[in-house]
Amino acid sequence: MAVVIRVADNEDDLAAVWAVRRAVFVEEQEIPAELEYDEYDATSAHLLAVGEDGAPLGTARLISGAEALALTGGIAGRVLLGRLAVVPAARGTGLGVRLVRAVEELGREHGATELELHAQVQALGFYERLGYAAHGPEYDDAGIPHRTMTRVL
């Protein structure tokens, strides 16, 4: 499957990002829209994966800068990967791995030395295979059990 991953830097790309997140999180996982879209969307970098036909297949966001410092408890050099979503038709193709690696590279470009994410418990194995380690107890986020994970870049 030929896929291009790029930073969403225009209105059409951002609309595609929101469409993927709506399909995966709001419709499929039944997360209320008011919890899915937050104040970090305006200042985050969003990646968009599109197929050969231009159809949106996946997305992820990177939170860096002051927002990352606030969310990580002031840990310098740490950025956050979030809102990783792949549409059902593209699952099992390696796209999720490619999106994670693209966020890691973008994080490095922002000067990051470590990446944090808040993984749904059902996805822990996926992230562990990519070198992430879980820390702390499970917690509820939008009605779904999560754990914090990190990886040194």
Rank of each mutant, 00 (worst) to 15 (best):
15 A>N: 03
152 V>G: 13
105 E>R: 15
73 G>S: 08
30 E>P: 00
77 G>C: 09
102 A>I: 12
49 A>R: 02
42 A>T: 14
116 E>H: 15
99 L>P: 11
16 A>W: 00
64 S>P: 03
64 S>I: 05
124 L>H: 08
53 D>N: 12
7 V>T: 12
68 A>D: 06
141 D>S: 14
102 A>G: 10
143 G>M: 13
101 R>Q: 15
100 V>H: 11
138 E>N: 07
70 A>Y: 04
102 A>T: 10
87 V>P: 04
22 R>I: 06
71 L>C: 04
18 W>G: 00
60 A>F: 08
6 R>G: 10
33 A>M: 01
102 A>D: 12
107 G>I: 04
68 A>S: 12
80 L>Q: 14
146 H>A: 07
86 V>N: 01
11 E>P: 00
151 R>P: 00
61 R>V: 01
132 Y>R: 02
90 A>S: 11
56 P>W: 05
127 Y>R: 08
96 G>W: 10
130 L>W: 05
108 R>D: 01
129 R>S: 15
125 G>P: 02
77 G>Q: 08
62 L>H: 10
125 G>C: 01
105 E>K: 14
145 P>M: 12
27 E>D: 13
87 V>H: 07
148 T>Q: 15
133 A>P: 04
78 R>I: 02
51 G>C: 11
113 T>G: 15
142 A>Y: 13
14 L>Q: 02
134 A>L: 06
60 A>C: 06
46 H>N: 10
98 R>I: 05
48 L>A: 06
150 T>R: 15
32 P>I: 02
66 A>N: 03
26 V>W: 03
144 I>Y: 12
132 Y>F: 14
77 G>I: 10
2 A>N: 10
135 H>K: 13
104 E>A: 10
120 Q>F: 09
44 S>D: 10
18 W>S: 03
143 G>R: 13
28 E>F: 02
91 R>L: 07
149 M>Y: 12
47 L>K: 10
109 E>S: 13
56 P>L: 04
4 V>H: 12
66 A>E: 14
106 L>H: 08
144 I>M: 13
41 D>F: 08
98 R>G: 03
80 L>H: 09
91 R>A: 10
30 E>A: 14
28 E>T: 07
15 A>D: 06
74 G>Q: 07
11 E>G: 00
79 V>E: 09
128 E>Q: 15
48 L>P: 04
37 Y>A: 11
64 S>Q: 11
87 V>S: 05
144 I>L: 14
74 G>R: 08
131 G>Y: 00
150 T>G: 08
18 W>K: 14
100 V>R: 10
33 A>T: 01
34 E>L: 00
135 H>C: 06
123 A>R: 09
123 A>H: 07
38 D>G: 07
23 A>K: 11
44 S>Q: 10
9 D>G: 07
65 G>K: 11
25 F>M: 02
124 L>K: 06
125 G>H: 05
15 A>Y: 01
132 Y>Q: 04
38 D>V: 08
10 N>P: 00
152 V>Y: 08
119 A>C: 05
117 L>G: 07
60 A>Q: 06
78 R>S: 12
19 A>Y: 03
136 G>Y: 11
72 T>H: 07
61 R>L: 01
92 G>A: 10
137 P>F: 06
151 R>W: 00
4 V>C: 12
21 R>M: 02
112 A>C: 02
101 R>F: 13
52 E>L: 10
60 A>I: 05
8 A>S: 02
72 T>S: 13
3 V>D: 03
126 F>R: 06
107 G>Q: 04
62 L>W: 09
152 V>R: 15
84 L>D: 05
12 D>W: 00
